[in-house]
Write a protein that binds this DNA or RNA. Structure first.
Length: 485
RNA sequence: CGGGGCGUAGCGUAGCCUGGUUUAACGCGCGUGGUUUGGGACCACGAGAACUCGGGUUCGAAUCCCGACGCCCCGACCA
């Protein structure tokens, strides 16, 4: 009951700041009050609580299945990496050095060489695979690992940027550049599927600019999503390294021509940040909204009763229903709280469907079903739930994606001049699509004038027959600009 | 790293300016008992804080002074 401001019309929320007035405050309240995650003893690190971790697990399981389906195998590499490994690739170390966390002591004495808590594992992969790859017959090597990484961040936010986070990092090594580049886009497509089909988050896949690419990559690709506050969030990335890392780490193979060659490598990752994206795309003034496919709890049953007799009546009536819904992630809430309290709490936590069962319902052999998506309420016969609930979950999943897509569409504009961009970004953000010549000076100029950066050059977009919106030279591509997380 | 703010019970705060009826208060939460239960219930009783840490001033410090540490916000930085 921390908030004194006037209640929203519906009067359902008491504990979270208003999304419309204080988006960052709202986000923070929702993450903590919905019991997804909390701060920890160390600044910038977080405790992921069971409800939040269950959400991550659902996303992870879906992605892990896709990764395996596309031919990759899970490995595990150590978290401690000798500092010298990181220092071998100049661009890479330059990009990451400020974020290193070093271990300098062990066993009570100073270490010969500091160890880095992995910020990412490219260097370790390339080094290790030297022992396993000799011939073109040993390629491709398609690896993935689920782990934690550390980056010493100055400003942190739960899920979006923490010093330690969970992700998967895939690393692959190929005989040819064609094969490696194909891999980059195969994995980007996997990420698109996870984001759009599982998390109901519309994304734009495409290529990052030179400035925005990963340190050490030839080029980077990403999927970009638009949050409800108009800011962009990179939801996953996939990089092409060419021979950059294999040369730097002297990973070679003997090719079909009997000559020593360097494999072409890639890496790609999706992190717990996707959880933050999901919250900021679907959440509203009442809290989170979980897309049914990844929701830790898809259906919650709130029994309403006054007496022991009513209680057992409800329990008895529910028994066959529970059998019909055995495929659903379902929770019964028999806690000793008033129903209204439970309604609010489950809405805050974003459970897609709530089933209310009380004496009035049972008298008609029905239950009251309420959708979190729009609070639509309807009576459904007890025997129909086994069919109606799965259909409803599917319908909610689709509706959530459609609504997010509509938001993105109405918040995407085409502009063709720098003054128009400056004027636009003074009012807010959203996606801004412009013709662009591709020069880094333009990016820096726009960033200085507006705070916005290039997010992505959409896959499949063609060079418009137009002048670059920033400098007026002939455009080489279309590009999306936005203020970003 | 620059600018600003804050450290008082599990959480959110009041008290501080103007030291002493403060035995540090209030709300939420927590425990027990009871009445309740279809949109965040109510009553009663109860547990819970040597006020971030270290110095100093003073007869007396949560309160004033100095220092340290931690956290938050803004900026810079940033897969």
């Amino acid at each position: 009951m921390a908030v004194e401001e006037e209640q929203p019309e519906k009067g359902f929320v008491k504990e979270i700041r208003k999304q419309s007035q204080d988006f960052p405050g709202w986000y923070n309240d929702v993450v903590r009050k919905a019991e997804l995650a909390d701060y920890s003893a160390v600044r910038g690190c977080m405790v992921i609580r069971p409800y939040g971790f269950a959400l991550w697990e659902n996303i992870r399981n879906a992605l892990d299945a896709l990764i395996k389906k596309t031919g990759h195998e899970n490995w595990y590499f150590p978290m401690l990496i000798p500092l010298s490994f990181l220092q071998k690739e100049a661009e890479h170390v330059e990009g990451f050095a400020p974020e290193f966390a070093l271990v300098t002591r062990g066993g009570g004495k100073e270490l010969e060489e500091p160890l880095v808590l992995r910020p990412t594992s490219e260097t370790l992969l390339a080094t290790t695979l030297r022992d396993y790859v000799q011939s073109y017959r040993d390629l491709p090597v398609l690896t993935n690992q689920w782990n934690n990484v550390f980056r010493w961040e100055l400003r942190t936010r739960l899920f979006l940027r923490t010093m330690e986070f969970l992700w998967q990092e895939g690393h692959t090594f190929h005989e040819t550049s064609e094969e490696a580049e194909k891999e980059v886009y195969t994995m980007l497509e996997c990420y698109r599927q996870i984001a759009e089909e599982w998390c109901a988050i519309p994304v734009i896949p495409g290529r990052k600019s030179e400035i925005e690419k990963f340190a050490g990559a030839q080029y980077s690709t990403a999927i970009e999503a638009l949050m409800k506050d108009g800011k962009a969030l990179q939801a996953a990335t996939s990089h092409y390294f060419g021979e950059n890392f294999t040369r730097a780490y002297d990973l070679t193979f003997t090719g079909r021509n009997n000559e020593k060659q360097y494999p072409h490598s890639t890496s790609w990752g999706m992190s717990t940040r996707i959880v933050g994206a999901l919250i900021m795309v679907h959440g509203d003034e009442s809290g989170i909204q979980m897309p049914p496919m990844v929701a830790p709890i898809q259906v919650v049953i709130v029994p309403i009763f006054r007496s022991e007799a009513e209680r057992s009546q409800i329990a008895a009536a529910l028994a066959p229903v529970l059998e019909d819904l055995s495929e659903i992630r379902l929770k019964q809430d028999w806690r000793d709280q008033r129903p209204g309290f439970k309604f609010s709490e489950w809405e805050l936590k974003g459970v897609p469907v709530r089933i209310e069962v009380g004496p009035r319902d049972l008298a008609r052999n029905e239950v009251t079903v309420v959708r979190r998506y729009d609070r639509a309420k309807e009576a459904i016969g007890l025997r129909d739930l086994g069919v109606r609930i799965p259909a409803m979950l599917k319908q909610i999943q689709d509706a959530m994606f459609a609504r997010a897509m509509e938001f993105r569409t109405t918040n995407t504009v085409r502009l063709d001049s720098l003054p128009a961009m400056v004027e636009h970004f003074q009012r807010g953000s959203g996606f801004v699509l412009t013709p662009w010549c591709g020069s880094a000076e333009d990016e820096l100029k726009v960033k200085e004038l507006t705070g916005a950066t290039t997010r992505v050059i959409p896959t499949g977009s063609v060079a418009p027959a137009a002048a670059c919106a920033v400098c007026g030279k002939p455009a080489a591509t279309e590009v999306i600009w936005a203020k970003a997380y």
